[in-house]
């Protein structure tokens, strides 16, 4: 272990690192290998058949498409939230600021039931939309809605501190040089917060792809139309097809891992660029 690290006078590396690795192995790594091991019982052809059947492919399209779109929506609204929270005063601001994290703290099943109640055609919002011919609950739009709900805090909370740390002098200088407010935003502010927006986007996306509890109550679950990928795992399990379920699961796991590597890379990049200067 010691050969791995550079010299430090502090004690406890062996103990802390050892404990970390053992705990990580027991809780995360070994159980996740079980997914891989079970998948390997399939053989390549069966694996490919399991992860590329039309219904599963349609579910990837929905899960990844809706998650991308939801994360995109969250970037726009998350930025607006972060902006007004950092820069403006308005009534109810304290409330908004603390409740932005609600989707994170509220159990997903509760969120799903509540959203289905509100947006179904006899719910308070669904009732208003029905005459307009807009249906949300039990369509792919319902999936999108639930994913927007759970992803919102991630963008707000990554952008907010960066926006708060942005030095006023830079903006004043830009204004002094005759830049309009919009130019200042596009040329100065946006590039500065772009990595944070990207990180928030990636986190909202990563979370949305795997989400189950809140989506299942509001998606119609119609094959080829509104089935999400986690539901396909459950569907395979219900047919006692453990290996097929783990095959789809391992596809999702690999995607999650790659996504996280990207997020962590982005965060490292952000820290190098801004943390010391902030």
């Amino acid at each position: 272990m010691a050969s791995l690290r550079r010299f430090s006078p502090l004690p406890g590396f062996g103990l802390a690192m050892g404990y970390t690795l053992v705990y990580l192995a027991i809780i995360v790594v070994i159980p996740l290998t079980a997914v891989g091991a079970k998948t390997f019982t399939l053989g390549w052809d069966a694996f490919w058949a399991a992860v590329s059947s039309p219904r599963v492919v349609a579910s990837y399209q929905l899960s990844f498409g809706a998650s991308l779109l939801a994360a995109g929506i969250n970037v726009v609204f998350g930025l607006i939230f972060a902006w007004v929270l950092v820069r403006y005063r308005f009534p109810g601001k304290g409330l908004v600021d603390s409740l932005v994290d609600l989707p994170f703290a509220l159990p997903t099943a509760v969120a799903g039931i509540a959203l289905a109640t509100i947006y179904s055609q006899n719910g308070p919002v669904g009732k208003l939309l029905e005459p307009l011919g807009v249906e949300i609950a039990y369509t792919p739009k319902g999936v999108l809605l639930a994913l927007v709900f759970i992803g919102l805090p991630f963008v707000v909370r990554t952008v907010q501190p960066v926006l708060a740390d942005l030095e006023k002098e830079v903006e004043e200088a830009a204004a002094g040089l005759g830049a309009s407010r919009w130019q200042t935003f596009c040329k100065i502010i946006l590039p500065h917060i772009a990595p944070a927006l990207l990180t928030g986007f990636a986190m909202a996306f990563a979370r949305a792809v795997g989400e189950y509890g809140s989506v299942i109550f509001i998606a119609g679950n119609v094959p080829m139309v509104s089935e999400i990928t986690p539901l396909m795992i459950i569907t395979k399990l219900e047919q006692y097809d453990y290996a097929g379920a783990t095959a789809v699961a391992s596809v999702m796991l690999i995607i999650s891992f790659v996504l996280l590597l990207i997020i962590n890379g982005l965060q490292g990049w952000m820290q190098n660029r801004y943390a010391r200067g902030a």
Partner: peptide
């Protein structure tokens, strides 16, 4: 013609009865 395929029988009843679908 199926509008909603819930994952269980109870879910379907709720969709039809409570949600008015």
């Amino acid at each position: 013609n199926v509008k909603v395929l819930d994952s269980g029988a109870r879910g379907s009843t709720t969709t039809f009865v409570e949600r008015g679908i």
